[in-house]
Design a protein around this nucleic acid. Structure first.
Length: 465
DNA sequence: TGTACCCGTGAA
DNA sequence: TTCACGGGTACA
């Protein structure tokens, strides 16, 4: 068997911080970001103490050693830039707060894979130094998306890339990472290797870093992993693809570092905060918003258009939400109206109303039951690329108080939208459920609630057309 | 000597 | 083959 090898002078394997939770990525990131946000600005020592305690409480971590938890604390943060450190204090970054507030993992990973680059502040200083010395500059996300996009444009057919090919023909070759080889030329090499039936000497460690980035692009819904083991462009994300193909300014401050100075490492260290700021900089969000309707309707263009039109009508053309929470609310307004209509209470439909947030009434929607009793509905929406345990949500103090005063009239509609399914679970009277010991509640700026969907409330099919 | 990504290695 | 624990290691 003939193998493809990268010529020695161009061979330079890239590396980045390994994730510690690929099997449980979504739960860990939602948990970590909400804990970091909850702790807020504290002195470094106090912040680390509280954060360590949080990590220890994460399911499965109670028996982990301090060493392992320290590694969790520092590595997850290093990779995703969730904590900002100044001389004395630590505080949650914008990305951490946004992930905790908006529960939009898709968007979080879009931004991450758009910005992530080599060299980057996620690495140890001496690695950064080595990359600067080698004159490496590489943004893997935009590179891969552009390569597949250009390849499809040129050939007119779907083009897929495997992990090994990404490692051998892109990541670990200085002709790409240093010499900025045009993406299409990398694609030519991949095609050529396929034609020649060259194999790759496959080892887990060698491809894992390229594999990580490809997997992150899947969570970002930029790529789809097909059963053939290859990663393909997700064509429904045309706006984001366009953006990835023409990325804005990268992080260039390492260019200012004098590589021959005796204090290189200190100079690099001084740029740590700039890197965190770069990762958390405001970017043109319109390109990166998660298309919840696309998640719901999957590949069906007809259903997508029908739903979009319908919601636009319902909300007077205001369906271009910045937040998935907003579209979750409009979906539930729609759901309630359809439900009443299906049960011959169309007369009550006009009473289903979205309540403006600034009224701070402690719920999102006022609706009616089939017997015309008032329903106060709080919608909790989460968007994700894959199915995750959705049995956790947060109520603010205001929401919890309203739930307490309204009791049986108060409903939480837990909505999970992912490419695999749409789940809606309804909990009536959360305060009562708590008092009857049916759900767990931890007071934390309001209430963190954990419920067992099999034990309480009921699942409902989201009505949307 | 403590810290914080690095990464060998066993487990799933 | 993939992934995460926890010891490894280089810097501060």
């Amino acid at each position: 068997m003939a193998y493809y090898v990268i010529p020695n002078e161009f061979h330079y394997p890239l590396h980045h911080t390994r994730p510690r939770f690929k099997r449980n990525l979504e739960n860990v990131l939602f948990y970590v970001s909400s804990e970091i946000s909850r702790i807020g600005k504290e002195t470094k020592v106090e912040f680390q103490n509280q954060y360590m305690n949080s990590l220890k409480r994460f399911p499965g971590n109670s028996t982990s050693t301090k060493k392992t938890l320290d590694n969790w604390r520092t590595e997850i943060d290093a990779l995703f830039g969730l904590i900002y450190y100044d001389e004395t204090n630590a505080s949650p970054t914008k990305n951490a707060k946004e992930l905790a507030d908006n529960q939009d993992l898709v968007k979080f990973f879009k931004r991450f894979s758009y910005k992530f680059q080599y060299p980057s502040g996620a690495l140890k200083n001496h690695f950064i130094r080595d990359y600067i010395k080698k004159e490496i500059f590489f943004r893997p996300g935009p590179y891969i998306i552009k390569m597949l996009n250009d390849a499809e444009k040129e050939s007119g057919i779907r083009c897929g890339l495997s992990k090994v090919e990404a490692a051998y023909c892109i990541f670990n070759d200085l002709r790409v990472t240093r010499d900025q080889r045009a993406p299409l030329n990398s694609w030519e090499l991949i095609k050529d290797n396929r034609l020649k039936k060259l194999a790759y000497n496959y080892t887990g460690d060698y491809v894992r870093y390229a594999g990580d980035i490809l997997d992150y692009l899947v969570i970002a819904r930029m790529l789809k992993l097909n059963p053939d083991g290859k990663y393909y462009l997700n064509k429904t994300e045309s706006l984001a693809i366009e953006r990835f193909c023409q990325p804005d300014k990268p992080f260039t401050e390492y260019e200012t570092v004098d590589i021959n100075s005796t204090s290189v490492l200190r100079e690099i260290n001084n740029l740590n905060n700039s890197w965190i700021n770069y990762m958390n900089e405001e970017i043109d969000d319109d390109y990166f918003n998660t298309d919840v309707l696309a998640l719901i309707t999957g590949d069906s263009t007809d259903e997508y258009i029908a739903l979009k039109d319908h919601l636009e009508m319902l909300t007077n053309g205001e369906v271009n939400p910045k937040k998935i929470g907003d579209i979750g609310e409009s979906l539930i307004v729609n759901h309630e109206k359809l439900y009443l209509k299906l049960n011959e209470r169309e007369d009550l439909c006009h009473l289903v109303k979205l309540i403006p947030t600034d009224l701070a009434v402690g719920y999102d929607i006022s609706s009616r039951g089939l017997d015309a009793t008032s329903k106060y509905i709080e919608v909790k929406t989460t968007a994700s690329n894959s199915r995750l345990n959705f049995s956790r949500f947060h109520l603010t103090t205001n929401e919890w108080n309203t739930a307490d005063s309204s009791r049986g009239n108060y409903f939480v509609y837990r909505l999970l939208v992912s490419s695999e399914d749409v789940r809606l679970h309804v909990l009536q009277d959360p305060v009562g459920l708590y008092k009857k010991d049916k759900i767990r509640m931890y007071p934390k700026d309001g209430a963190d609630i954990i419920f067992d969907p099999d034990e309480c409330g009921f699942s409902e099919k989201l009505l949307f057309v």
